[in-house]
Each structure stands twice: as structure tokens, then as C-alpha cells.
Simulated scan of single mutants.
Amino acid sequence: MGRLMARRIGLTLDRVLDEAIALADAEGLGAVTLARLAERLGVRSPSLYAHVAGLDGLQRALALHAAGALKSALQDALEGTSGLDGLRSLARAYRAFAHAHPGLYEATQRAVTPGEDPELSAAFLEVVEVVGRPLRKRGLTGDDVVHAVRALRSALHGFIVLERAHGFGLSASIDESFERMVDLLIAGLHG
């Protein structure tokens, strides 16, 4: 009956993912369960198995989608920029993505053990490659790029987590603090 009902209402993987993204962005990634998703879609939970391999499969699909969406946002931010402006634009786009899509952003934080899921690993690596582009243009190579990407990601993620948790209680501008943090990171790249 589940598959018949799913077909009757036009349930597709895209529709399932769209609803899961909306739920994740509204209530957090932890709120995305098969039961909640089925309720929102007006189907029974077993109907979802025609489109995703359980909750793990749904979370994987969300992570793949999130990696692609973040990559696109960062690529768009880099377009037409050069040098330090590229790094600033990338940092702003990363923060904007996290605010516009908090659930998807949370899905980008999924840990993948090397060799465990080559497709998901490749999707996350593509995001890292985009972040590395302006760093390579600054003359970084090899492991220096890896270390710089890790530092940039750590700083941006930490700022975003604190900001979303209302961890910046002082009256100074949060946007100004963000810009100064990015400037400090860029200055650190010059050694």
C-alpha cells in the first residue's frame, strides 16, 4: 500500500529531499526523522523507503545535496573576484549559506571515513577544492593549502556556531567582528 500511495500522490526523491531540507532548515537536522517527514508529506513512513534507504540514506542524500549547494554558493562568490577579495567573498558566502540554510549547513558537517563512501567523500572534497582556489592563488601549495583550509573552516564554523547560539552578547557589531576575523585570517596567510 505504501508504494501505491506514494505513486498516487506523486512522491519522488526530489519531493522527499525538498521536504527534508525545509524541515532541517526550519527545525535543525536532528528534527529530520522518517516519521516527521512522512507526516509532512502525508504518507506513511514505509512509503519513503521507495526513495531513500532509511534514515541513514536520507541523511546521506541531504549531505550530498548540501555539499553541492555549498559548493555552488562558494563558486558563485568567487566568480569575478581575485586575490584577497576572493577570500573575503568566500568567507561571507560561507556564513550567508549557513544562515540561509542552517539544516543543510549542519549536513555539511557529516564526518566521512576515507573509503567509506567515495561519492560523499568526493562531494565534500569538491567543496574543499573550491575553498582552496583563492589560497592557491595566494601562492600556497601542498599541505599548506590543507592547513589553511582547515584553519579557515574552523574559524568560520566556530563563528557561525557561536553566532547561531547567541554567544556574542556584547554590543559591538557582530558583522564587524566577522570582517575583522576574516582580515586576521588573511593577514595570517601572509606569514
Rank of each mutant, 00 (worst) to 15 (best):
M1F: 00
A6P: 13
R7S: 15
R8D: 08
R8I: 00
L11K: 13
L11F: 14
T12A: 02
L13H: 09
R15I: 12
D18A: 15
I21W: 03
D25F: 01
E27F: 06
G30V: 10
A31L: 10
A31I: 10
A31Q: 07
V32C: 11
T33M: 02
T33V: 03
R40G: 14
L41A: 05
R44G: 07
R44D: 06
R44F: 00
S45E: 15
R60Q: 09
G68T: 02
K71G: 03
K71Q: 06
K71D: 09
A73G: 12
Q75T: 12
D76Q: 13
G86F: 01
L87P: 13
R88H: 11
L90V: 06
A91I: 07
A91K: 01
R92C: 04
R92T: 03
A93T: 07
R95E: 13
R95G: 01
F97E: 07
A98E: 08
A100E: 15
A100R: 14
H101D: 05
Y105E: 09
Y105W: 11
Y105L: 12
E106Q: 14
A107K: 11
R110W: 11
A111Y: 13
V112Y: 02
V112C: 06
V112E: 00
P114T: 12
P114F: 12
P114E: 12
G115W: 03
E116S: 11
E116I: 11
P118N: 00
L120G: 10
L120I: 07
S121Q: 14
F124G: 06
F124Q: 05
L125F: 03
L125M: 10
V127H: 02
V127E: 05
R133D: 09
R133F: 00
P134V: 07
R138N: 00
R138S: 01
R138P: 00
G139R: 00
L140H: 13
T141Y: 08
G142I: 15
D144M: 15
V145W: 15
V145R: 12
V146E: 09
H147E: 06
A148Y: 05
A148M: 07
A148T: 01
A151G: 13
S154H: 10
G158Q: 12
I160C: 11
E163H: 11
A165E: 03
A165V: 02
H166K: 09
H166T: 08
L170C: 03
S173N: 04
F178L: 04
E179Y: 09
V182S: 07
D183K: 00
L185M: 15
L185D: 03
L189F: 01
